[in-house]
Computed example of a mutant assay.
Amino acid sequence: MERRLVVKGAFYDVECARTADGSEPAGQFLDELKKGMWDGDPNDPDRPSDEQIYDYPAILAVLKHVATVGEPPHARAVNYLERGVWEFKRAAKRLSFFDTPGDGTYTERPKILDRTNGIESVYWWFPNFDHQLRLGHCFAKLGEKALPQDVQRSLDVREEDLTYDQDT
């Protein structure tokens, strides 16, 4: 079964990661967000949510920009979590992502901390990823930092997705 392709770009193809049970949490998140029906944000209890319906194309625009240009449209669109897992951000909504060549492996790509090792861009801290960016765990960030369980679930989804690649 093929993964859901969200955006195909010159730099990256953005796809939904698969979990051990074969589901695609990011695909479900995007489908629910498009309808204003995502229940993951306790600060947005209305259903359908006008905010979510508005956020859906904004999130897709960020994904398309990264896929076609190779860097974020603005510094607050992405954030590094840990151990090679990043997040796309829109208000309190978060979509974890990681990169892979698609063969069940990955190379940990943290945020670049030394400008001399970066590229010639205002986004020098954003690394060059493998061609496939996989969207994983989606969650609401309600405080200063992502909750440890959300970061761990993001890491777990990456491992499950890479295992799925190895098994196919």
Rank of each mutant, 00 (worst) to 15 (best):
G104Q: 09
A67C: 15
P148K: 10
L133F: 02
P25G: 12
Y106I: 00
R134A: 02
E159G: 08
W86M: 01
R94M: 05
P25C: 13
V122Q: 14
C138P: 02
L147Y: 00
E144K: 15
R115N: 04
P25N: 05
A17T: 02
R158Y: 04
F139Y: 15
E159L: 13
I112D: 08
L113C: 05
L113P: 00
K35Q: 12
N79R: 13
E108C: 04
R109I: 01
A10M: 14
E24L: 11
L95N: 00
Q152M: 11
T68E: 15
Q28Y: 03
F129A: 00
D31Y: 02
E82S: 11
A26W: 01
T163A: 15
L155G: 09
D165Q: 12
Y164C: 14
S121I: 06
P148C: 09
G102C: 05
F98T: 03
K8G: 14
S49V: 02
I119N: 09
F97S: 07
G70S: 13
A67D: 13
A67H: 05
L5I: 14
S121G: 03
A67I: 06
Q149D: 12
L147T: 10
F98D: 01
A77M: 11
L33F: 01
L135M: 07
F88D: 00
R90L: 10
L162I: 13
E144M: 13
D44G: 11
D130R: 06
L155I: 06
G70P: 05
D130S: 14
E82A: 12
Q52T: 11
R76I: 01
D55R: 15
S96M: 06
L113W: 04
F129V: 01
H74S: 15
G36T: 03
R109V: 02
F139G: 07
F11I: 07
F88I: 14
Y106S: 06
R90E: 04
L30H: 04
V7A: 14
G70T: 10
F126P: 06
Y54L: 08
V122G: 03
F139D: 01
N43P: 00
N43K: 11
K141A: 10
L81H: 04
D50F: 08
G84Y: 03
A10F: 11
V14Q: 01
L113M: 12
K111D: 00
